[in-house]
């Protein structure tokens, strides 16, 4: 069997995702990408909402009913969290592009700041939607 192994099998494996706990910086980084992909979907939903508004009262009532529903409001909270996450991380990347904040302690601090900022955005949206009556 050993000689049947392909050349690919002998290549080094790293990091093995099933047994390797990703460090904080890696988690923040991959979730930034995930947030970007998810926000692209949110952009589609926003365009659909705009098109519904332009199409007339019936279409708008349906689209806005979904936004005002519990699931819609929870989605809006998630959108606020995702915008905070992607926006905060984007800002962090701009500092890196300028050559600032590259040390691991600095990157971990800014990573935590992004997490806190995203949570604050989500909580703020939740407060506005569920308490403020938007």
């Amino acid at each position: 069997m050993a000689d049947a192994k392909s050349r690919e099998d002998k290549r080094p494996l790293s990091p093995h995702l099933q047994v390797y706990r990703l460090p904080l910086l890696a988690v923040v980084s991959i979730l930034n990408r995930a947030a970007g992909v998810a926000l692209s979907g949110v952009l589609v939903l926003f365009i659909v909402w705009l098109a519904a508004l332009a199409s007339g009262p019936e279409a708008f009532a349906m689209a806005n009913g979904l936004v005002q529903s519990l699931i819609g409001k929870l989605l809006m909270v998630a959108v606020a969290f995702g915008l905070g996450w992607h926006g905060g991380n984007g800002l962090r990347h701009l500092f890196w592009d300028a050559g600032k904040g590259f040390s691991i302690p600095a990157a971990e601090t800014s990573g935590w700041l992004v997490i806190l900022f995203a949570l604050a955005c989500g909580l703020g949206a939740a407060a506005l939607l569920f308490l403020g009556g938007i």
Binding site: N64, G90, L94
Partner: peptide, 27 residues
């Protein structure tokens, strides 16, 4: 990315204002 920061932030504020008054208000 840089342009999106103010564009989306202000758009969200505008959407909050537009959400009052139902269909007529939004239009």
């Amino acid at each position: 990315a840089v342009a999106n920061i103010p564009l989306i932030a202000v758009s969200l504020l505008l959407l909050c204002k537009a959400s009052k008054g139902g269909y007529e208000g939004a239009v």
